[in-house]
Design a protein around this nucleic acid. Structure first.
Lengths: 203, 203, 203, 203
DNA sequence: GATGAATGAGATTTCATTCAT
DNA sequence: TATGAATGAAATCTCATTCAT
């Protein structure tokens, strides 16, 4: 007879561990973080943590990639709305750049951790791959719609542009994670939409 | 077997170590590579390697970031040439995307290693920072020149666009390093130049 | 097997390690003793030992210098007693030479280890220095008292004699530690007191 | 046909190595000195050094114990002279304390190195043992002579006193080697002779 | 002989994981 | 179930010694 409250309690302990882990992994990186660090940060015991996650790797895999993780549900909602393709694209950009907690450097560091880890950790790799495909197809649909509606030029390479847009965001994440400079997200978003819609060429 | 021409010989041994190290670091990542791995790959002894590099970290720092490391000298030469800004920008893009060994996945993995390591290793961080600044200023100069000549629109945010272009390339590197897909560099380069010059909007 | 009374248990494990360490350090010396030796002697694991002492050096520093370590408390008690200076001095000598475990060769070896190590290890050096000062001042007080009471000659150089007495004991320790001969501590103590009180000269 | 000058040359090279070795061993201790250190200090090559001494240990064993190493020849000469026992004893003490280069701290450090090493290195042990016996018998002879002549008291324990005198000098060496204080050798020698001849007791 | 690059056994230390209590 | 002491494989690095040139 498993206790009633147990489930709820387990969930909250699990969350506590994940939060602690995320915090140290961000600060010190996956490899330079020891389970003792996680223990210290969480305030729990070693045995407790191993009761929830059977290895350091599994603990890591269960962290959320909050880096530039777009809220896909919101993005899909926008896609299905009744606006111009341009407006939709801008709104999706808004979600990326400005929503959530305004993109913390720590979250971006976590993204970088995931990318680096993905080379050795299958499940992380797969998660990244799936994420990528979803966002790519979403953007491709949006771009195609714009072309069909006559908002966007006929000649554009929709798939490549989707790839490029994702790459740009990933690159900004990387920069924000690793380098010293501050990023003015609003300004960079404006520059990006301006560039994407109209290019640099004078007519 | 110490040879007559000491200096030359040492350099070649040093290079052998660096090559071996690069190869394993790319394959397994910095942390999952042990010095024994480097020893095995290089065919030398542990002592020999420590005779050239006083720690695993120092060995790593001495590897070249060949990822998307633009050949800055060639880029500067283009900048000083007598062509249109558009043509110059395209040529710089060519250097990035198509030159060298056509951008190997391994080289991109190394770039990712450097980015991840930069969070904990000062000298790597600094190297990245410097690289970034150089490329950024180079691109900014090129864009400004285009605006002055009337080739590019007056309203563009030169600094932000330079940042975005770098981010795009970094993001492609990251994707190439981590994910499964192949990248058609020529196609993606064409899509990028098309996008950058003319945007997606129909007139 | 962590027990209920954690503190007590930890202390006993700690002591077990210290005993094992002392035993091998005495036998083989600090440098010729490897942590594996300590591991083997203690019956514990490597990790366990490092859980108690964070380095070989720290482990060494925590060993007690039982060599000729006078029991200062007992010596002070004697100093405050109500006897002749001569009697006090003899009793202090008794503590040195005859008390404790009758001065084991091993303990003297440990003393030598400490002296040798003190050249490179600050904390050991400092411990030695402090010990020396305490004993020196104790002896100087005793000698001065003897002079004041008229038991000892007025002309004696109290500080130098204190230094000489300590040196004699240290030298005996050294000899006992390094050379083959047995030492008859009672005989040597008698000779020392005889010498110190009356000198060799015939009247 | 071995070259003529060779022998002389070999000797001077050998001396250069020994000097260099002594210098670093004094500074850093036997164990913390690497052969590379000796190489650097001597200005010779590794191969050269191994050409003269077949191991680090052998090199060490060939160093001279200049610590408090009495000049036995001079001591013996004094013994055979035609003076009072007291005068002879004082002169022997002079040799110990005041001759040579006034007893350098470095030489005493070397003595300590030898004592510590003697626990593990047979030849060093044996050398120390022999030295000890020689000095001991020399002092015993001197003391006995004093007794026979009526200069010294009949009841004294000659052997023990010889041991004590050596111990005192060894202890001073140890102290000078390890601790911070300066030693006024003349003063300490005066105190020692005063103590030894007349003791502390007032009549 | 002289050189110093190379060797490789062995030292110290770390840390993910287990398991007796 | 929770604890945290204990484990021990594996990592990094050192350094006395050798030996091809």
């Amino acid at each position: 007879m498993p206790p009633k409250v147990s489930e709820e309690y387990r969930q909250s302990t699990r969350d506590k561990i994940l939060e602690a882990a995320e915090s140290v992994f961000q600060r010190k990186g996956y490899h330079d973080t020891s389970m003792d660090n996680v223990v210290a940060e969480s305030g729990l015991s070693k045995g407790a943590i191993y009761g929830y996650f059977k290895s350091k790797e599994e603990l890591f895999e269960n962290l959320k990639n909050r880096g530039f993780e777009i809220n896909l549900d919101r993005a899909r909602a926008i896609l299905e709305s009744n606006e111009s393709a341009r407006s939709k694209l801008e709104k999706v950009a808004d979600i990326y750049f400005l929503s959530q907690n305004e993109v913390s450097r720590e979250a971006c560091r976590m993204s970088l951790q995931f990318s680096a880890a993905s080379l050795q950790m299958k499940p992380v790799h797969q998660h990244l791959e799936e994420r990528y495909q979803e966002i790519h197809s979403l953007l491709a649909i949006l771009l195609k719609e714009g072309v069909r509606r006559g908002e966007f030029r006929k000649g554009i390479d929709v798939d490549s542009i989707a790839s490029l847009l994702i790459a740009t965001v990933d690159g900004l994440t990387l920069r924000w994670a690793t380098l010293d400079a501050e990023i003015n997200w609003r300004k960079i978003k404006d520059a990006l939409t301006d560039l994407v819609f109209d290019g640099v060429s004078s007519r």
